[in-house]
């Protein structure tokens, strides 16, 4: 039995999410192989071969895979996948985009966002935005899985010495084209990857007041989020939304400012390690999940907190 992991990378560096997937694969047991599909991505394969626990790296270096278009890469993974018992990718946007396509080509179901390995065919995954945890058993011969990074520790990036094997198969479906990319230039980390998040809700009053949170976030190296109420009120754009229909986050520290704590919001952040709530309503439901609650007017408390950190 061998397990194939699809590397998350940008043709230059191996992304950390891959390391969490390696840990999940190690828990399933068996030989762990990593596929690096891209263009000019030798450095990624070198990094993957150094990951502890990996026995082989498959390198598919071809212009057709440069932007990892799902149409092309899925054909490659489906072809390779028949030799494996498990095909795994991190549940990043790239993994979520690719893997269901692979599963359908292999005619198997997929298990999304797995957070726990019980055995080689039984896994746990959150459903209903994390309000329930389902234990599911796959009856398929090949298990196609995406791994939620926050569910598994990262494997050591050093200490391994896997062999690198070139894969020559070229698949170009020719039905999609990469046009361009616009990566956020913000110095702040991306919301789903941030270790600290400062979020504002309806209590912020207006969009300008979010500057208070941005200043605090800059001091903490944090990302800035928002509740749906703040988005619906037009304070901030909806890509900042944390919650059931927004982004699901699990940072080390989540600071909720002027957020009442409606269940849809809690669904997106209640797996955070430490939750701090600042709200002037001491009855607000957010205090029921907060490790540290401060009943205070945010317009006094946030600048003071900013000053004291």
């Amino acid at each position: 039995m061998a397990i194939l992991i699809i590397a998350e990378h940008d043709n230059q560096s191996l992304k950390g999410a891959t390391l969490n997937a390696v840990t999940a694969a190690t828990q399933i047991g068996g030989d762990v192989h990593i596929l690096v599909a891209g263009a000019g991505c030798q450095a990624v394969a070198d990094a993957a071969s150094a990951v502890a626990g990996v026995s082989k790296v498959l390198l598919a270096d071809n212009a057709a895979y440069e932007h990892q278009l799902a149409e092309n890469v899925s054909l490659l993974v489906a072809e390779l996948g028949t030799d494996y018992s498990h095909v795994i990718a991190p549940a990043t946007t790239a993994g979520k985009n690719l893997m269901p396509r692979v599963a359908a080509l292999l005619d198997v179901a997929q298990l999304s966002d797995v957070i726990r390995v019980d055995s080689e065919d039984t896994f746990a995954r959150p459903i209903y935005a994390g309000n329930a945890i389902a234990t599911v058993k796959s009856l398929d011969a090949i298990k196609v899985i995406t791994i939620r990074g926050t569910g598994f520790d990262a494997a050591a990036a050093e200490g391994g010495s896997a062999v690198i094997e070139a894969v020559t198969a070229v698949h170009d479906a020719g039905i999609s084209t990469f046009i361009g990319e616009e990566m956020a230039k913000s110095d702040r980390p991306e919301l789903t990857a941030a270790s600290v998040i400062v979020s504002g809700g309806r209590g912020m009053g207006n969009g300008e007041n979010f500057a208070l949170l941005e200043s605090l976030a800059d001091k903490l190296g944090a990302a800035v989020g928002a509740s749906r109420a703040a988005v619906d009120a037009g304070f901030v754009p909806n890509d900042m939304q944390v919650g059931q229909t927004g982004k699901i986050v699990a940072p080390d520290l989540y600071i909720a400012v002027g957020i009442s704590g409606a269940i849809q919001h809690l669904a997106g952040m209640k797996d955070s390690k430490v939750i701090v709530a600042i709200n002037k309503d001491e009855e607000a439901p957010i205090f029921s999940v907060a490790d540290y609650g401060l009943v205070a007017d945010l317009f006094d408390a946030v600048p003071e907190l900013d000053g004291k950190l």
Binding site: H67, I175, G180
Partner: peptide, 13 residues
Amino acid sequence: REIDGGLQTLELD
């Protein structure tokens, strides 16, 4: 498309 860290534009047939 919304991808981790930014936006990506694709053209599909």
